[in-house]
């Protein structure tokens, strides 16, 4: 007994330790939502401080950043996102993942498309032969910003790069079409149809062409009908009348050579085929 007095006392202290840790834990909220503060050095400094291991440092910061942004207890983590990804991409400018990961978080989670595009364009500048950054930029600007003019620019850049998949040119044409440049778009899709090698591609080009042609015709017919209405105060009975009154050169036919349906009440034309190019 006496031999182990010290051990016995230390056991008592361990019980006290356990007790105090237990009460401490009860009073501590380990999952507290909190704000944090981050101050980041510049990429150049980090490259110096990494003593030749800049790629490794970039890896670590990248891995850390993923944890950081997926920790929902840090309320203001998004505040630092641009700085963090700029830092990583400064340290390692040709590291592809951080651009993509960063822009995804920015676009999808934060809805900050401008920021995402800024990061992607930095990637595009640093890796000039890489198409994905311009493609993603075009995608975000067309999908979320509906800025098809900008998207056209990005898609055009992407489609010119080596290894760029075909669908990018289709997205490019789409963005041109969405800007209302119908004639240009018609010509583009005709070239697509010409170069199409598979049935599926042909089918898809046909659908696009059908739609574009319809839109062009619809626009023409509409302006003629509006003119007609202005002059006579009612809609014409059929499209032929427009030709008769020299408001149209000829009765437009759809891409497949059929006449459109004419709705006299509204004064609009509709395709016969149904809306197969729309969902």
């Amino acid at each position: 007994m006496k031999k182990n007095t010290y051990l016995l006392f230390s056991l008592i202290f361990f019980l006290l330790i356990g007790f105090s840790q237990y009460t401490y834990d009860l009073n501590t909220d380990y999952f507290k939502k909190r704000n944090t503060f981050l101050a980041l050095p510049s990429g150049k400094t980090m490259r110096i401080l990494s003593f030749g291991n800049s790629e490794l440092v970039a890896d670590f910061i990248y891995i850390w950043s993923i944890q950081f942004f997926s920790n929902y207890n840090i309320l203001n983590s998004k505040q630092f996102i641009e700085d963090i990804y700029n830092l990583i991409t400064d340290i390692s400018p040709r590291y592809k993942d951080p651009y993509l990961m960063g822009s995804t978080i920015m676009a999808i989670e934060m809805n900050n498309i401008e920021m995402a595009v800024r990061l992607l364009q930095k990637g595009s500048k640093n890796m000039e032969d890489e198409w994905i950054f311009d493609f993603e930029s075009g995608y975000y600007t067309s999908k979320y910003l509906k800025n098809y003019k900008l998207a056209e620019k990005f898609y055009k850049k992407a489609s010119k790069k080596k290894g760029a998949p075909d669908f990018i040119s289709r997205l490019l044409y789409h963005s041109i079409y969405m800007q209302g440049k119908l004639e240009e778009s018609l010509a583009l899709y005709q070239s697509v149809l010409k170069s199409a090698s598979t049935e599926m591609e042909k089918h898809s080009a046909n659908l696009h062409l059908y739609q574009i042609k319809f839109e062009i015709d619809k626009r023409k017919v509409k302006s003629a009908i509006d003119l007609f209405f202005k002059r006579y105060g009612f809609y014409p009975d059929n499209i032929n009348e427009l030709v008769t009154y020299r408001l149209l050169e000829e009765v437009p036919k759809d891409f497949k050579g059929h006449y459109y349906n004419y709705d006299q009440k509204k004064g609009t034309i509709d395709p016969r085929e149904g809306y197969m190019w729309k969902k």
Partner: peptide, 14 residues
């Protein structure tokens, strides 16, 4: 602080 003191005591006793 109490935790620290307990811990130091326990370790020193061992």
């Amino acid at each position: 602080l109490a935790y620290g003191i307990f811990y130091i005591s326990a370790i020193l006793l061992i």
